[in-house]
C-alpha cells in the first residue's frame, strides 16, 4: 500500500520529534539507584541545588560541566550514607550560599524567612481589629434634639426640590 505524500510527511515529523525527545532524555544523565528512597532523595537534592554557572537552573536540569560534577558528587555522597543536610552544607561550603535554593537560616537570611510569617501575623491582626471594631459598633437611637434637626433638614430639602 502506497503512502500518500501527506502521511509520509507525518511519519517524518513524528520520527524527528521522537529523536529530539531521546536527545533531551540523554542530555541529563539518569542515574540508577537500587534503593527507591535514595533515588527520591537524589531527585530532591539535585532539584534543590542551584547550578553556580547558570543563573536560574537547578543542577538536575543543567548541562554545564560543573552541574554534572555536582550531580556525581551528590550520588557518591548518597552511596556513602551521608545525610541530606551534610550534602547541602558540603556544596554550600564550596560553591557558596548561592547554590542553595532554600537558604540556610543565619544572620543575613533571617529576614527572608521571618518576613512572610510577620506579614501573615500582621494581616491577621488587621483582620481581628476590623472584626472587633464592627462587633463593638452599637446602634444608638437619635436624641430628641437630633430628631427635630433631622426632620427640619428633610423638610427644607423637600421644599427646595419642589
Amino acid at each position: 500500500m502506497a503512502l500518500t505524500l501527506k502521511s509520509r510527511c507525518c511519519v517524518v515529523i513524528v520520527l524527528l520529534l521522537a529523536s529530539f525527545q531521546s536527545m533531551a532524555d540523554t542530555a541529563i544523565d539518569a542515574r540508577h539507584f537500587e534503593d527507591p528512597v535514595m533515588a527520591e532523595r537524589y531527585r530532591d537534592l539535585t532539584a534543590s541545588l542551584r547550578c553556580p554557572k547558570c543563573d536560574a537552573q537547578a543542577i538536575d536540569s543543567s548541562d554545564s560541566p560543573v552541574a554534572a560534577d555536582m550531580r556525581e558528587r551528590v550520588a557518591l555522597m548518597l552511596h556513602e550514607g551521608r545525610a541530606d543536610k551534610e550534602i547541602l552544607d558540603f556544596m554550600a561550603n564550596r560553591f557558596g550560599e548561592f547554590v542553595l535554593y532554600n537558604p540556610r537560616l543565619d544572620g543575613r537570611t533571617w529576614l527572608l524567612w521571618a518576613l512572610p510569617a510577620a506579614l501573615v501575623a500582621g494581616g491577621a491582626l488587621v483582620v481581628i481589629a476590623f472584626v472587633r471594631a464592627r462587633r463593638h459598633r452599637r446602634v444608638r437611637p437619635l436624641s430628641e434634639e437630633e430628631r427635630t434637626r433631622l426632620s427640619s433638614l428633610i423638610h427644607r430639602h423637600r421644599e427646595r426640590s419642589e
Binding site: 554545564s64 560534577d69 558528587r73 564550596r94
Partner: peptide, 12 residues
C-alpha cells in the same frame, strides 16, 4: 579530574 577545582568551588 578537576578534584581540586571542585574543592575550590570552581565553576568557570
Amino acid at each position: 579530574a578537576g578534584d581540586l577545582g571542585f574543592e575550590l568551588g570552581v565553576y568557570g
